[in-house]
Every structure is written in C-alpha cells, then in structure tokens.
Design a protein around this nucleic acid. Structure first.
Length: 280
DNA sequence: AAGTAGTCCTGAGTGC
DNA sequence: TGCACTCAGGACTACT
C-alpha cells in the first residue's frame, strides 16, 4: 500500500532507467481504471522522457511533447521496470502478469509496467504548463517534507477542527502523503492519542507531531519504502521495511516502549493502532 | 464549510 | 476442499 515514502522510492527507482529515453510504444491493457485511461496516451511514441517527479502520492513523468503522464498507485499499484532482455522478467508467472494495465516500451527495450490488482490507481495525461489547474492537484494540502510544513502550518491545520487528529493528518486536502500506516506510527512516536480532537492539541503536541511525521516519512524513504504485501520496489524486488512498525498491525502485541498491549479501534472504516499508555 | 458515509476493486483470511 | 463472508485501504463523490 504505497504511501508517500513508497511513491518517492518508486520515482527514485525508475528515474535512472527512463529519463532521457524515448517512448517506442504504449500498450493499454485495461482502459478503465479509477478514471478511464485517456486515449491520447497511444500517441505518446516518439516523446522523450524529461523527468520523473513526485507530487503528493502522484508520480509525474514529464515528456518532451509538453505533456505529463500522471500515475497514482492507489492501494495496490506498482510501477516496475522490466527489461526485455531479462529472462526472469519475461518468465514472471501468469499471476504476476494478471493485473498489468499499462506497458510503455522504451527505445532501449526496457518496459515501464503499471500493475494494480485493485484498480484504485490512476493513469492520466495532462498539459505540463497548466499542471496547477489539474483537478486532482487543485485541492492538495501541504507537502510534509517541504519547508512550508512548519509548526505554525500544522497548528493552522489543526486549529478549531473537531475531527480527531488522525483523520486530520490523513486528509490529503490538508496534508498530503500520510496514509494509515504512517499516521499511526507518527502519532505513536509523538505520544499523541489518535482519538484526540485536532483543535485541542497542545503546543507541545503540535511540535512533537510535526517532527514525528517528518521523521517517520524520512526514515521510511531511507529504508526504501515499507511494504505489507502489495508494494514492490521499482526494480520488482519486494520492499523490506515491514517489520519495523511500532504499532501498525500489532494489535495485542506488547508496546515496544512500555510492554502494554497495542490496541486497535476503527475510525471511518480504518484501523487505528495505538498504545493507550504511551499516547494520551 | 466541515464532517461523514458510500463507492470503487480483488485477494487474503476466517469460519463452517 | 470449497463456499460465503469480511476485511484492507486512498481518495473521490454525494450527502447532511
């Protein structure tokens, strides 16, 4: 389940393989994902890849034809680089190929493969110049890894909000990139109760939480992105951060700080894991 | 404006 | 072994 660190890792992972290359062919295997894959995508052969960037959890592949390919991995999406000369890649099992939705072949024979079991992902093509006006970018909140994510910014986000703090930091219209896993982890690290009303956080809690969000995300990026089961690094190898969670998916297991059992409750259909003793 | 519920999808896990 | 059911989850839309 890709969150910001995973998306960042994918971008960094594919960048050296694709920047500077020219698109040879585009194969759309599944025309209907979260939104229909634009038909104009078939006109991309001949375009050169200029850069790979991340915006929130979106992957932006900027092309020489003034267009940008936008990819969101949704819940279960992967973006892998396959090499037509690599026997192991071509001998992937049928099961592994089953949810390939888009294959972009480059002039060096490498393939960018978008695979997404649950089809929550998105592939779109937008005008590079008017990116800011793209419907999915208009309402995006603050980037947690940019300087603009100051203590004051988080304070403003929380100010007079009655929703619980976890729901607030997970709201992409307020703060981007923090999904369920890292929200749980960051709140644990900050010692803040996930159920607490956002508007009632103290100065100290805001300070700690801002720091722990940044720390949690940076640590995960450094580790190459975390994984439960859906995520694989851009080169197709499984990620390796999954066993380092303090609270996520650890219901009933002892808290790593105080040994009390980790608790779980459901909030808006999302599981929230926390330690009652360490987070109050 | 802010908050909440429903929706999309498929594989894994669980209970009988 | 197999069937039926529940769950996971980002982020949208539609509703209160």
């Amino acid at each position: 389940m890709p969150e910001l660190p995973e998306v960042e890792t994918v971008c960094k992972g594919i960048e050296p393989h694709i920047v500077g290359r020219t698109i040879d062919s585009v194969k759309v295997l599944t025309p209907k994902l979260r939104i229909p894959v634009p038909t104009a995508i078939k006109k991309l052969p001949g375009a050169k890849i200029l850069s790979v960037k991340r915006k929130a959890k979106y992957i932006l592949i900027e092309l020489s034809n003034q267009e940008t390919l936008v990819i969101h991995l949704g819940m279960s999406g992967r973006l892998t680089i396959g090499n037509s000369k690599d026997i192991n890649y071509y001998h992937r099992s049928k099961k592994q190929h089953k949810h390939d939705h888009l294959i972009i072949t480059l002039d060096n024979g490498k393939e960018i493969v978008f695979n997404d079991t649950r089809k929550f992902g998105l592939v779109d093509l937008i005008d590079s110049q008017s990116q800011q006006n793209y419907k999915f970018f208009k309402k995006l909140g603050v980037e947690p890894l940019e300087k603009s994510f100051s203590k004051q910014t988080l304070k403003n986000i929380c100010k007079s909000r009655s929703k619980n703090i976890k729901a607030v930091i997970m709201d992409a219209n307020l703060l981007v990139g923090v999904g369920n896993i890292y929200a749980c982890e960051a709140l644990f690290l900050a010692g803040v109760d996930p159920r607490k009303e956002a508007g009632k956080l103290t100065e100290e809690e805001i300070t700690k939480l801002r720091k722990s969000i940044v720390q949690t995300l940076r640590k995960a990026i450094k580790a190459g992105g975390s994984t439960i089961q859906d995520y694989a690094k851009a080169d197709g190898n499984a990620g390796y951060f999954q066993h380092q969670f303090n609270v996520y998916d650890r219901e009933g297991k002892p808290c790593k700080k105080c040994q009390c059992p980790i608790l779980r409750f459901k909030d808006n259909g999302r599981s929230t894991y926390y330690c009652e003793t360490c987070q109050d």
